[in-house]
Design a protein around this nucleic acid. Structure first.
Length: 421
DNA sequence: TCTGGGGTCCTAGGACCC
DNA sequence: TCTGGGGTCCTAGGACCC
């Protein structure tokens, strides 16, 4: 048995923990660059503000109803997430942290009659210790546990906990579930299913395997099996090795010069390289991309990307910035205004097992640049991000993303700790 | 005027091998 | 005149998740 614990309106709940006046009031949180709505309190949902709506399109509703708006504060949400996860880990020997706000727990060690009471205890403890409300869905497969969680969230009578047991109960619920709401079936596959006359999870479960395989491929067949109660997706309790690390961002204003783009790419490289080092990884391939933005109709659209293998995998900000900046020069075009740029590292290996080039002196150089980057990391971690940085990032950063409504870093900066009284 | 960011996996088609 | 069969690997694009 699996329990899926999912935080309710997680980002909004994080803001509320530190500003209780937000309780009971409509609140939304925006994506990076203050672009889209990515979290909504129940009150905000009731006004018809949709998930993923561009901010400017719902601005009227927001102003009319006095909805409180926050820029995303991932430092805060990440820190609150690890607090929640550490509490959850006490409730099961096996846990998979599935995303910033949800985790699967293995409940096989519990007797059936104990599952709901334990789930209620989880809710109580997480709420009391972090201020975050959670919902729990319990079932025999992960896909059904996701569905159970949805039911727990939607149905006020459930008290935030829902357990799938008994064939009839399951059948009734599958009949009420649209295919789009199944974990693993997105918008496109759902349209394909509709064309074949399959509208609900129940219809999918009752369809012929060969037919499902044809419409949805092997993943879809696996999903159908899971809905039938046959586990096909196991708990991934050990964090799998990463295959890529990416950093990309939209600009706060239009950018057209190579200088500004190089600055932005330098910053993104520094950010992604820091994450490589944190994961004890080194990149074998560096890719960068440029984008003029897909929503502007008047200007010419231009997207391009370029990759380069590097002889000795690296995680040094200095090395990688050199590669990234030289790549961006190759795809830069004049007389365009860019909205976004980014860097992706792939072909990752562990930094302890880097294969050096036999005919060069790279081991010594490698060691030196590692020491430098690590020294920068420790200064930045002690004195705050951006205390030391490469000058190639620039000092003005006029292109930096907008985040005009960011709450304080309540839990990670001494000067922003909340004060009482 | 203003539309996010970071990931994973599968599939089909082409190139190549013997 | 007649022109096979069985593979692997890579890539781009598409699907999904949060």
């Amino acid at each position: 048995m699996f329990a899926l614990v999912d935080c309710n309106n997680f980002y909004v709940s994080c803001e509320r923990t530190f500003d209780p006046k937000l309780e009971g009031r409509p609140v939304v949180v925006l994506s990076n660059n203050d672009g889209c709505i990515i979290a909504r309190s129940e009150e905000a949902k009731a006004f018809g503000i949709g998930m993923g709506n561009p901010f400017f399109q719902v601005r009227d509703i927001i102003e009319r109803h006095g909805v409180r708006v926050f820029s995303s504060n991932y430092t805060l949400y990440g820190d609150m997430s690890s607090r929640v996860m550490s509490i959850l880990s006490e409730f099961s020997p096996e846990m998979e942290v599935y995303s910033i706000d949800e985790a699967f727990l293995d409940f096989s060690h519990l007797e059936n009659s104990k599952m709901e009471p334990v789930a209620r205890e989880i809710r109580k403890k997480v709420k009391q210790w972090t201020g975050i409300p959670v919902s729990v869905g319990i079932a025999g497969t992960k896909t059904l546990a996701k569905l159970a969680n949805r039911t727990a969230k939607k149905n006020p009578l459930s008290g935030g906990v829902f357990l799938f047991d008994g064939k009839e109960k399951t059948k009734v619920l599958l009949g009420k579930t649209e295919t789009r709401d199944i974990w693993g079936i997105g918008g496109n596959l759902s349209v394909r299913l509709q064309r074949e006359g399959i509208y609900t999870a129940l219809a999918l479960v009752e369809a012929d395997d060969e037919k499902i395989r044809n419409i949805l491929g092997v993943c879809g067949l696996r999903t159908a099996m899971e809905l039938r109660g046959i586990p096909c997706i196991r708990l991934e309790n050990a964090a799998l090795p990463r295959k890529s690390v990416c950093c990309s961002r939209s600009f706060g204003k239009e950018v057209s010069t190579l200088e500004e783009l190089s600055e932005a790419i330098s910053l993104y490289t520094a950010d992604a390289a820091e994450r490589l080092r944190h994961g004890k990884l080194a990149a074998g391939v560096v890719s960068v991309f440029l984008d003029t933005g897909r929503f502007r109709k008047k200007c010419q659209y231009y997207f391009n990307s370029i990759s380069k293998s590097i002889a000795v995998p690296s995680n040094s900000t200095g090395d990688l910035t050199g590669h990234a900046v030289s790549l961006i020069r190759k795809i830069y075009r004049e007389n365009l205004t860019y909205k976004k740029a980014g860097i992706i590292f792939t072909e990752l290996s562990t930094s302890e097992s880097v294969q050096f080039d036999l005919f060069s002196d790279t081991p010594a150089k490698f060691a030196k640049s590692c020491v430098l980057s690590e020294a920068m990391d420790s200064i930045n971690s002690r004195f705050g991000d951006g205390s030391v940085f490469y000058a190639s990032e620039g000092t003005g950063k006029s292109w930096a993303m907008a985040r005009e409504r960011c709450s304080p870093h309540y839990t990670t900066r001494w000067d922003e700790i909340p004060e009482a009284g």
